[in-house]
């Protein structure tokens, strides 16, 4: 590859091989489309529906889907499921997204520091990663959720606290493999501070694997939120979330199955989208796929 080529590529990042591969990845594109539609619906949908998510219509309790104005039916209090589903989507997607941001930040910092310094620092930090991984995440998450005031912010934080380990492992392995490379040596010889080498020189080389892991972390975070909210330890009513919409659905399973089916399918669609996108990103950003 000549210098001229590199120059042109720099200005057309969207024509790079990685982006091309991603766009041609059928599953990833399906995931992007589903996620886009879902997000759009959650953002503008609530303004278009006839009912808001807290309006209680006692005459229309347990209305099945497609009955009158209640397109997806109503819940035991007569609240419109469509409106609740979309408002819940805002909460669940935001919790998933910010839990990902936070856990990626924690995991990246710990991984970079452990990988860069090596030796004792590495052993101590990585043993902590192993120890956290020894706890079944749901047990740890539920214990923390039960002990702490369950506001959406706290739920986001505890999900992040229980899911940063994978990213730390990935980043640590990457840093270890890059640590002895010439550009790091050059940085040291130039007298750059360690923090500069770690986060300005090393980090940009691992954006690919981090993005892939982060995408899959969103999927995982949405599932975790759904589960603890389903059990009543997550997002608290009246604030709707996909998980707490399923809370109580089990007791009406025989008479009003849509209470369970609709939020469940929505969660599955959202999580599948992130998993598809993550798979596409992994294929697209895997440097080993790059000829040259």
């Amino acid at each position: 590859m000549t210098a001229v080529e590199i120059h042109t590529h720099k200005h057309r990042w969207w024509r790079s091989r990685g982006v091309q591969r991603f766009v041609q990845h059928r599953l990833a594109m399906i995931g992007m489309a589903m996620l886009f539609l879902l997000t759009l619906a959650c953002i503008i949908g609530p303004y278009l529906l006839p009912y808001d998510e807290l309006y209680i219509d006692l005459r229309a309790r347990f209305a099945p889907p497609l009955s009158g104005d209640h397109y997806l039916g109503t819940d035991p209090l007569g609240r419109d499921i469509a409106a609740r589903l979309l408002m819940a989507g805002r909460i669940s997607l935001l919790v998933g997204f910010f839990a990902m941001v936070l856990s990626t930040a924690i995991g990246t910092v710990i991984g970079v520091v452990a990988g860069y310094y090596g030796g004792k620092v590495n052993s101590i930090l990585m043993r902590f990663v192993d120890a956290f991984l020894a706890f079944p995440s749901i047990f740890l998450l539920l214990a923390l959720a039960a002990f702490i005031n369950p506001s959406p912010v706290m739920i986001t934080i505890i999900i992040a606290v229980t899911s940063w380990m994978e990213i730390a492992r990935i980043v640590e392995a990457e840093v270890k493999s890059l640590r002895e490379r010439d550009f790091v040596m050059a940085g040291r010889m130039l007298g750059l501070r360690n923090s500069h080498i770690m986060f300005r020189e090393l980090l940009p080389n691992m954006v690919g694997p981090i993005i892939v892991a982060a995408t899959l972390t969103v999927a995982r975070a949405i599932l975790l939120e759904a589960y603890i909210s389903f059990l009543g330890y997550g997002i608290q009513p009246p604030l709707p979330s996909w998980g707490n919409m399923l809370n109580g659905a089990q007791q009406y399973l025989a008479t009003a199955p849509w209470l369970a089916i609709i939020p469940g399918i929505t969660i599955t669609i959202a999580v599948t989208s992130f998993n598809f996108i993550g798979d596409g990103l992994r294929d697209a950003l895997d440097v080993r796929n790059d000829p040259a």
Binding site: L27, Q250, I261, P263, F276
Partner: peptide, 25 residues
Amino acid sequence: TVGAMIALSIPTFWFGLVGIYVFSL
């Protein structure tokens, strides 16, 4: 491959509810 990715995306507790609905109820 696709099936595995979808299976990983289904919340286990919800799949349990669907199982109960179909096979028990």
